[in-house]
Amino acid sequence: MREFARQHPVWSGIAIVVALFVIWAIFAPWPEGFEAIFGRKRVFLNAVFSGITLGALYFLVASGFTLIFGLMHNVNLAHGSLYLLGGYLGYEFAEWTGYWLLSFVLVFIVVGCVGMAMQVLVFRRLEGQELRQTLVTIGISVVAADLMLWAWGGSSYQVMSPDWLRGPMELPLIAGYGRDGELVYLRYPKVRIAILFAAIVIGIGIWMALNRTRIGMIIRAGVDDRDILGAMGIPISRVFLGVFAFGAGLAGIAGVVGGTFQSIAPGEDTRFLMASLVVVIVGGMGSLQGAAIGAVLIGLAEQLGSVYMPTYAVVLTFLIMAAVLAFRPQGLMGRRG
């Protein structure tokens, strides 16, 4: 970053001005003329927060995707199906046990096992044939989508959040002036704050596990060169199995989260598959930080886009992806290779 600032004074200056403007726009009350152009501040703040929360959800889905991709070079196009399965199972578990938090644990275990089964039954047999592995995941996603349609039907489900997460909470952010000129603060659903918080905790947790533990070291080495890692006597197939199970479990958890703050229905699998693809392309394939940056960027683009240019919101996502591919094909945080 310092190198960049030293070499590109103009770009750094522009970046600082933009950052200051964004901070001002989020924290300060907007003057009247400004609101006349950009609409009400509450709308803007809500879009920003929804974008970040959506980004947190995208991060949960995409982090598993990017871990699996980074280590095994396998584009798991059935990742969206794992998300959907997690959502349905989370609904069932939450209804059955009555404990929202418990459903996360159960879904993580069950979907993780499904991921393990996929790894053992499918990917291990097609070891080294990346194209065929990817084709197989497409077949699995088609079959899985039909199976889930069979089991749960076409209606949409909503996972109920527990009582202590219901209702809004007031954030220390100024939304505007009230009728008497007093400051009005932004009110935002508690459950979304919890999701954001949880995603940050999980993200930091994965980052710590990757960078501070022995297993993380093995995984990072595997991303760089799995053949050498295998030659050093590491049981690489067991590492693959573990990472696949973990990534699948994360997708399942993300399904419960998505089912809580949005809903679970057929078609959500492809939506979140697309989201993970875009996030990973933008952020850089195989990079966890890249997934975080890409997720927030795409989440913000979708929400701000749908507020300020409703029928062209997807174009914004598309343009971000195209710009990244044009100027940095390996993704924002990706490495060439």
Partner: peptide, 10 residues
């Protein structure tokens, strides 16, 4: 595959 699929869904 990834990029064209992402573009197709976009």
């Amino acid at each position: 595959i990834m990029i064209t699929l992402a573009m197709a869904s976009a």
